[in-house]
Design a protein around this nucleic acid. Structure first.
Lengths: 226, 226
DNA sequence: CGGCTGATTGAATCAGATCAACTGCTGTGG
DNA sequence: CCACAGCAGTTGATCTGATTCAATCAGCCG
């Protein structure tokens, strides 16, 4: 039945507070899908037919260049929806998506979703809020990439993690290579940036465990420019 | 009266096809405002109270670093709406805005606009399409910044202008310094990139007039990575 | 005619990418 | 159970694209 789909839909933040009837009709059109780590969900440039949501697992959205360099745009985890852009344009996916871990996903066809939006203004407002938040994040990312250097970007990222995890002993949520790609650099350079922050006494790193020693110092660095 | 406001509102693409009644109620809350070249409309971090639309003139939206370096995110001209992000979050403007020329603007308070959205699903869909288009553009910009070098970004920008202006004799729509800032670099570097493309026989530049000599070559370059 | 701003050119410097070697870890198969 | 393949991460040496600093030039307005 749709009961597992319903449960999965209920766990998506975007659909919180949606009346039962709407959830039902979503369950009618949504597909529940399992995929393995490393699996590609879609590629930049392909026609964008579906909206996705992560039930469990982890998905990265990125752009690749011909030479194989990649820029991570965002990593989505349980409860988050993504790939909304082509829903409203009927065009292609602007980026590629790949599962980082074994994951469960919901995929919702564009057509039906738009119908739902037309009928439920509150959901529409939720979507607009989501898109806006994404825009805000991208504005920040663009500014970081062009205005700051790698150690500063790293400092910003660590502070973000800190506020997400709510303490000073962090666990890196991604392999370092992926973090490098998110910060717009390569593993070698990230490695050196980590060393630099460590030498300055701002952090302490052991594998994927990071201890924030000097949050204010990090914040100062993250704001700083040369 | 509101007749000039109505005319101005009618010229905004986002509001095209809006029923007369809705336009009226928009006119009731919108402010028509004139501002001079160089004037700042709002700054990143300020509480975002208004949505804007350009009636005439030109506005740039950008982020500045403390040291005075700036990254242009977008330049808006007649008929375009901007600063939608804080409307749906009630938070701050993620970037700053400044008039590049003497301009006429509409400013629409957040509150009333959200009301309107609740009542008109078609407008809401229009807003979502707008936000999505913006996201797509930002994805492209992020990829360019981190995956390509300056001459390649310039090639992409020129091709964009070409398709916007519909011919091979282009007029640069911005002073070169602003173009540099949009491309994530500085005037000196842009100048050298222009020289490089010229020497390769791809373009011919005289002041702010550019002639595209080899569109395919430019396209190849724009796609290329090292 | 100065004086200002925008643009260009040259030389020096620097952050980050590249290339290459090496470490350590994990998981698989002999 | 150990060996070795393979991948993630680190470290060092070098190279290069871009920024910085400085000087010059062109156009424009008062």
């Amino acid at each position: 039945m749709d009961t597992d789909k319903l449960a999965a839909l209920g766990g998506i933040k975007l659909f919180e507070g949606l009346p039962q009837a709407q959830l039902q009709s979503l369950a009618g059109i949504a597909q529940l899908r399992r995929c393995k780590a490393g699996e590609t969900l879609f590629e930049a440039g392909q026609p964008g037919t579906h909206l996705f949501a992560v039930v469990s697992g982890k998905v990265r959205v990125f752009r690749a260049s011909l030479s194989g360099k990649e820029q991570v745009l965002h990593v989505f985890t349980g409860g988050e929806a993504f790939a909304e852009v082509p829903v409203f344009e009927g065009k292609t996916y602007p980026a590629s998506a790949q599962a980082l871990e074994d994951s469960e996903l919901l995929s919702i066809p564009r057509k039906g979703f738009v119908e739902l939006l037309r009928r439920d203004p509150e959901l529409a407002l939720g979507v607009m809020a989501l898109l806006s938040a994404r825009l805000r994040a991208f504005v920040g990312q663009i500014a970081q990439l062009s205005l700051k250097e790698v150690p500063e970007r790293l400092a910003g990222y660590l502070l973000l993690l800190r506020s997400a995890q709510g303490r000073d002993e962090l666990t890196l949520d991604l392999p370092k290579g992926q973090i490098a790609s998110y910060l717009g650099t390569i593993p070698e350079t990230l490695s050196r940036a980590i060393k630099k922050l460590s030498e300055q006494g701002l952090i302490e790193v052991l594998g994927s465990r990071v201890r924030i020693l000097d949050p204010e110092g990090l914040a100062r660095l993250a704001e700083a420019d040369r």
